[in-house]
Amino acid sequence: MTNMLEIAGLTKLFPVRNRFGRKTGDVRAVDDVSFSIEKGKVYGLAGESGSGKSTIARMIMGLAKPTSGDILLSGHSITGETGTRAYGRKVQMVFQNPGSSLNPRRTVGQSIAVPLAAHGTPLGEHKRRIAELLEMVQLPTDFALRYPHELSGGQKQRVAIARALAVAPQLLILDEPTSALDVSVQARVMDLLVDLGQQLGLTYLFISHDLSLMRNFADTVGVLYLGKIVETGPTASVFEAPQHDYTRLLLASVPVISAEEEAMRPKIPLIDGEIPTAEQLIALRDGATPVSQRTET
């Protein structure tokens, strides 16, 4: 089976400059990341802020240029492809906050019509296609005439999904698609994403910090920590038997609602401070007192 997306040795460095604009070093935002997603599967990237998960999404979308490494879509390198319409027809993205990713001055229909027009759907077919897309995301077709401010958060996110699906992409990048939503609304949007994935044979790259959500949605997960994938594997095995100390720390930090979940959480003391360094993690594993990596200034 061919992989929909294959990423090999992906690295992104951001230059650090001093106050005179001279380069003094690099931040390794993404550091030699490799993973692949089979067609029709969900790959989950889990990580906290600063882990590099959004930078990876931006590089796949062509919004940022990798320093080194390869991104292959259906076996072909995307270098030189990104930014073209052909590429946009294959890969689309749903952003975190639908309140800011939808243009407030466009009606829902106009928003969905933008990708349709850009990708050459004849004007006469727009109306029919918009209605079709709205139905796909389970919204009434008369929503096409409404403005984003008339919709709830969950409805707005459905519109954002409809817009991403307008060009019938193969790969959909979901960057924290439900983190701005209430939990009951989140469940409905996740239902929709699962159904659409099955109906349309979509491949998802799911980016999230919510491990409980990841457990129930992703087929495979990769745990990102300071730009590196420290652990990857089938979701169930990573969650049930985490190998890396950072994965254990993440799991131990999730607030849960049942005794069964509590039983599966690793029992380790929580670290006092920010994202822990490698030394801290080792100290934790050895049962030593956690030390803070961050100097308090």
Binding site: L211, R215, T235, V256, I257
Partner: peptide, 10 residues
């Protein structure tokens, strides 16, 4: 969603 899995969406 549960950390133990078993919450199926869709």
């Amino acid at each position: 969603p549960r950390l133990t899995g078993g919450t199926s969406f869709g």
